[in-house]
């Protein structure tokens, strides 16, 4: 059996098979050089067992728990703000989609059997009427400016919210 560094290391870790161990011990007994090599490697391995365990600062846990409480619990005002902004955008988007759909369906004359459909179109038309006037050419720039301003402001607060909860 040729005694390599790998064999020596495997012996130290107790990973040799019965046969390998038998052959290894014969080799070790017959060679002072291999015995010496093994002793030194064993010493190196034992020295690694004495390595220090380091510890972070004493108040590490308390500081971390404080940080956890602060970072992971978003402020109620933030939650309300994000909820309101999201609601406004969802309502606005749904209304616009509804209006567009109503326009599309309205251009095609429905069959007589689709009375319910006509009723829905009627309701949608009534809901969409204020928005039609809102988005009319005279007030479109004003509405656009307000929406852009809203997006910028909410973008800023959302970024700030992400920063604090990160």
């Amino acid at each position: 059996m040729k005694i390599t560094d790998e064999i020596l290391n495997r012996y130290i870790d107790g990973e040799l098979t019965c046969q390998e161990l038998k052959d290894f011990l014969i080799e070790v007994d017959s060679s002072v050089q291999i015995k010496e090599q093994l002793n030194i490697l064993q010493t190196a391995s034992n020295s690694f067992k004495k390595i220090n365990e380091y510890s972070p600062s004493d108040d590490f846990t308390s500081r971390l728990m404080l940080q956890l409480n602060k970072k992971l619990k978003p402020r109620t005002s933030d939650k309300i703000f994000i909820f309101s902004i999201s609601s406004i955008f969802i309502v606005l988007s749904l209304t616009i989609i509804g209006f567009i759909l109503a326009q599309i369906i309205g251009t095609n004359k429905p069959a007589q059997s689709l009375v319910i459909g006509e009723n829905i179109i009627g309701v949608l038309g009534t809901i969409a009427q204020p928005f039609v006037s809102l988005f009319s050419s005279s007030s479109i720039s004003l509405v656009g400016a307000i929406i852009s301003f809203g997006i910028i402001i909410s973008g800023y607060f959302y970024f700030d919210y992400q920063k604090t909860t990160r």
């Binding site: 560094d5 790998e6 290391n9 130290i12 030194i40 490697l41 010493t43 190196a44 391995s45 020295s47 690694f48």
Partner: peptide
């Protein structure tokens, strides 16, 4: 692991 031990050796 073996290489680290050998360096120390």
């Amino acid at each position: 692991l073996y290489r680290s031990r050998n360096i120390l050796k």
